[in-house]
Nucleic acid binder design. Structure first.
Ligand SMILES: [Mn+2]
Ligand SMILES: [Mn+2]
Ligand SMILES: [Mn+2]
Ligand SMILES: [Mn+2]
Lengths: 216, 216
DNA sequence: AAATAAGTTTAGGCAAACCTAAAAAATATA
DNA sequence: TATATTTTTTAGGTTTGCCTAAACTTATTT
């Protein structure tokens, strides 16, 4: 399994939730910052290796094998992110890029020991669940802040956008995992929201409210 | 800097101590488990990049640039080995192969934080010095056990061969860093040695005594 | 010094993972 | 339904890092 193959499987895993009938080469190429022609080639290889279901012009989906491989890479990614944030002095906006490299290290013992060293964490620093060795993922029902109505209150349990810039924005507004968010007002014309956090009121754009997850 | 380029520089660094006039393509190829023709190609590339001194048919040596890059990779390798042995439950014969992968991760912050997390170690679990950020290496004068004469005593400070099989052999004989070794007898015909460690006497082959370093 | 042996480089190929441009298929629109 | 647009695949290249076989250079023998 090459780095590139692992990245393709991981990307298909993420994208197939929104494209249950098949992830298109264009979407995959965008996500991977490459070109549709390159994607077609790789997908055919993964299909021959028995990791994906591919039908020309119909997109691609992971099969059981491919999903397990993807989940193992995601497990490694999230364990490494946890390591960087908990044991080394990384903030949550700095961990993703390094974890993108570390997730490809091959050593069963390493990932087992890392898991133990971290105290068998269930979630990474962005609030995402860490799959277990068998590829089981805890499914938490969560809502986007944008789906709440004025008066409702939720606890921040995750983010959708994990880019540095968004995470740094959240840091500036002092929004972190576990923060309690109350919807004060929904601005009708642009769907922006006034919310209360720690007694402070602040205004969040629609883009922002769609990228913050809460549980009720 | 690709993984492959880093491995070449690291290999040249190790080999040029024994070949100060130039490391031959054959020697390098053997060390890297590849072929002389492949080595010639890569060396030419490294020469064009200004990392080595290469004269056709005369072998290759690192220049200042190349040596610094090599030392940074070695620094990462030894810090990761220390991490695996000290923080995770790896024994000294299990760490090298994983460190061969981890040494290629690119992140200045990561290596800085890892160093701090480990308490700024000066030596790795095999007794090898860890270069500092500027590429300075502590030079310790050490001798092979084979160079001692009967009656002399030394403290084990390192090994030459870091293969699993040799390290496991040392574990079996309870020879570890810090162990005090006294030469009891030198067998003339095969240069094997009877040594005393922890009050026990045992026989070491010449291969073994040449691969254990002690300081007096 | 000439012949032989050993070591090194060059030439030509291959696989992985990209790319652009052209051809083909699917989808949308008139 | 026929035509235009968009999406996808195919064809043909490129780069990196490897390989084998042949040519060449250097070192060692006789
Ligand atoms: Mn991440
Ligand atoms: Mn990631
Ligand atoms: Mn090592
Ligand atoms: Mn190493």
């Amino acid at each position: 399994m090459t780095f590139s193959e692992e990245n393709y499987l991981k990307s298909i895993y993420s994208l197939q939730k929104d494209s249950p009938k098949g992830v298109s080469t264009t979407i995959l190429a965008q996500y991977l910052e490459s070109k549709p022609a390159s994607v077609t080639e790789m997908i055919k290889k993964l299909d021959e290796k028995g990791l994906v279901l591919y039908q020309p012009y119909q997109g691609v989906l992971l099969n059981k094998n491919g999903e397990l491989v993807a989940l193992k890479v995601i497990r490694k990614h999230r364990l490494w992110e946890t390591f960087l944030a908990k044991k080394l002095d990384f903030s949550w906006d700095e961990i993703h890029d390094v974890a993108e490299q570390l997730e490809h290290i091959k050593s069963d013992k390493l990932i087992k020991e890392l898991d133990r060293f971290l105290g068998f964490p269930t979630h990474d620093p962005h609030g995402d669940p860490i799959p277990d060795e068998q590829g089981n993922v805890i499914k938490v029902e969560k809502k986007q802040v944008s789906q709440l109505i004025p008066g409702e209150t939720g606890t921040c349990v995750g983010v959708n956008d994990t880019s540095s810039s968004f995470l740094q924005f959240l840091d500036q507004q002092n929004i972190k995992l576990g923060a309690v968010i109350e919807i004060v007002h929904l601005q009708d014309f642009d769907k922006s929201m006034t919310v209360r956090i720690d007694g402070r009121e602040l205004l969040l754009s629609q883009i922002a409210t769609e990228n913050i997850y809460v549980k009720l």
